[in-house]
Design a protein around this nucleic acid. Structure first.
Length: 570
RNA sequence: GGUCCCAUCGUCUAACGGUUAGGACACCAGAUUCUCAAUCUGGCAAUACGAGUUCGAUUCUCGUUGGGAUCACCA
């Protein structure tokens, strides 16, 4: 590739003036050199990396975005660098109202808030802003005009139809599709043609004039994937769009911003890998030192309908949107731990050895991230992390989280819990603590289903209706008989062993086998085993088939509740 | 179709060219005087295929197959 900035402009100076005027549309913008003076080199220790996370405000935050943001944060933090958040809102059509705030809020809830850029309280920090691309329009224009002046950009008046027709033509001729070489409709048009189009006030995009050749190969080093050898770019991509906003495309915006913001490593999804030669050429055309790129894997999911993996999509997979994770209220630490494990496989060992350490203490390694295929989202494994995480919480912390969640998500339960704090305290302490805490709760939204039945109002409203289903196949008479037998022997003051003996006795008298062998030998002689009997009692007490130890539950509930739930036959 | 990336248990992955190919999640079985969970113990389970280099290949090379990404005035 030859040094392009020396290229003689191919457009007449008159046309360049008119194009510039059209793009500027009356506004007055600074020169590129003036802009550059404002963005001085950062004062950072040697080896410090400046990373940036650059989402588009499309209304939701992808779980993969958190993954990338985390990587940006770790790398910046560990090198004493800076992690910046930049909003890429150059596509006004796709922009969703309120997304910017949503993004910074979500980053905050995941603890990956940026060092620079929009913060979750809507303030902006940093001296390299603005950090929203639409507010940086003048800069892109200044660089684009620079390109126009050096002959590396030109206007293209082709209509969508013309462009589509060309692609169709290419396809029928089995040629590579795209706007390049002789297929670049306006690349070598005469000044007269361009002047005429300008006279006619036709809309135009400003295109890059590529000097690359698809037949020549170039080499660049990806920080994660290593040495890449690929064909040069030869596409004359649009740099400035034709609509009234005159905003840049991603390509120009990326190069200009990361240059001005003094970014040192560009982390982005690996879907950008193929356009990297273009970005390198663009940077060179602008006389900018190309960046170090690090193309990160994209988190995928198994397509239930197809066979293979595919990208997590917003429409098909609720898990793709972090709003889902927040809504379900998984502990953030668990999500981050899971994600970290995906990024660095040695994390799991570290995490096991340092269960109480702050995640930020983990020594993140770019090298370990280098595994380049996109991992599959494993919700089961994530839940495992989450259950562990919650089980490890101190009782106090656990109670606090439970109440906090209920307060904002389940007012009825919250009120019930707060009505009797001592009772609630005992309820929440069931089978917690000790060496093997119960792991029923993977996410805070599990709480109502897990503890709701302890509260009479909640029990009758939400759990009683499910009793019939849970006991499907057991006749009402048998249920009544079992309850009757149980209550006949029930002694609330009995200790666990006595309680259990009583239950066995009740079961036997109600016609259930205590001896498994006897049941197996003559099933017709019994209504079932002790387990079946216990199930009836359990379901009537809790509305559930799966609960902690029944004795403990009854002790906590108190005699009155036990009586009211099991005493009468209804 | 062109280009690029990738290929170890179902999943995430580990293994200076020499390991009985390891771990985690999931799954299965047994134990834990009731259910479920948890816990403990055990188990199932992988180097896509074919050549080549080598004393020796999961590891290096080539080919095949398979998967993924990309080819917009979206990012």
């Amino acid at each position: 590739m030859n040094n392009s900035t020396q290229q003689t402009p191919r457009l007449s100076s008159d046309n360049i003036k008119r194009i510039t005027a059209s793009i500027l549309n009356g506004s007055d913008i600074p020169l590129r050199s003036e802009i550059e003076q404002q963005y001085v080199a950062r004062d950072l220790p040697a080896g410090a990396e400046v990373t940036r996370f650059a989402p588009s405000p499309t209304g939701f935050v992808h779980i993969g975005a958190i993954f990338t943001a985390m990587i940006c944060q770790y790398v910046a933090r560990q090198t004493e660098g800076i992690y910046v958040l930049r909003i890429e809102d150059t596509d006004k059509k796709r922009e969703v109202e309120g997304s910017k705030d949503l993004i910074s809020r979500q980053l905050h809830t995941f603890g990956v808030e940026p060092d620079e850029g929009l913060q979750d309280d809507e303030s902006v920090t940093g001296d390299y802003g603005p950090y929203v691309q639409s507010e940086r329009k003048d800069m892109y224009l200044a660089f684009a005009i620079d390109l126009l002046n050096t002959g590396r950009a030109y206007p293209c008046f082709a209509t969508t139809e013309e462009l589509q027709a060309a692609v169709k033509d290419q396809q029928s001729k089995k040629l590579r599709p795209g706007y390049y070489g002789e297929w670049a409709l306006w690349r070598d048009r005469s000044d007269e043609d361009i002047a005429a189009a300008l006279d006619a006030d036709k809309p135009f995009v400003l295109r890059f004039r590529s000097e690359g050749s698809h037949d020549t190969r170039m080499v660049f080093d990806d920080a994660l994937k290593g040495r890449m050898e690929v064909p040069e770019n030869d596409l004359d991509v649009p740099l400035i769009k034709s609509d009234e906003h005159r905003l840049p495309t991603y390509h120009l915006a990326h190069v200009v911003d990361d240059y001005l913001m003094r970014v040192t490593i560009v982390f982005r999804g690996e879907e950008w890998l193929p356009s990297t030669p273009l970005h390198i050429e663009l940077a060179q055309a602008l006389g900018i030192q190309p960046f170090t790129y690090a193309h990160t894997p994209v988190i995928s999911i198994v397509d239930p309908s197809g066979g293979g993996k595919r990208k997590l999509s917003k429409r098909k997979d609720p898990e793709a949107d972090v709003a889902y994770w927040v809504q379900a209220a998984y502990p953030m630490r668990a999500i981050k731990a899971y994600l970290l494990g995906l990024a660095n496989s040695n994390f799991e060992d570290w995490y096991r050895e340092n269960p109480d350490a702050a995640l930020s203490e983990f020594e993140f390694s770019l090298k370990k991230l280098a595994s380049s295929r996109s991992p599959l989202l494993d919700m089961k494994k994530l839940e495992d992390y989450a259950k562990d995480e919650i089980a490890r919480l101190t009782q106090e912390h656990f109670n606090k989280e439970v109440l906090a969640w209920c307060q904002t998500h389940d007012h009825d339960l919250y009120d019930a819990m707060m009505a009797d704090p001592e009772y609630t305290k005992r309820v929440l302490a069931i089978e917690r603590g000790g060496d093997k805490p119960r792991k029923d709760v993977a996410k805070w939204s599990d709480v109502p289903g897990q503890f709701g039945y302890f509260y009479d109002g909640i029990f009758s409203e939400r759990f009683v209706p499910g009793i019939a289903d849970a006991l499907e196949g057991v006749s009402a008479d048998d249920q009544g008989a079992a309850l009757g037998a149980f209550m006949a022997t029930y002694d609330h003051t009995a200790d666990k062993d006595a309680w259990f003996d009583n239950m066995k006795q009740a079961a036997e008298s109600a016609g259930y086998a205590l001896d498994r062998k006897a049941l197996k030998a003559n099933p017709e002689n019994f209504k079932g085993g002790l387990a079946d009997f216990a199930k009836i009692i359990r379901v009537h007490t809790t509305g559930k088939t799966r609960t902690p130890d029944l004795y403990t539950i009854m002790q906590i509930m108190g005699l009155q509740r036990v009586n009211s739930r099991l005493g009468s036959s209804e």
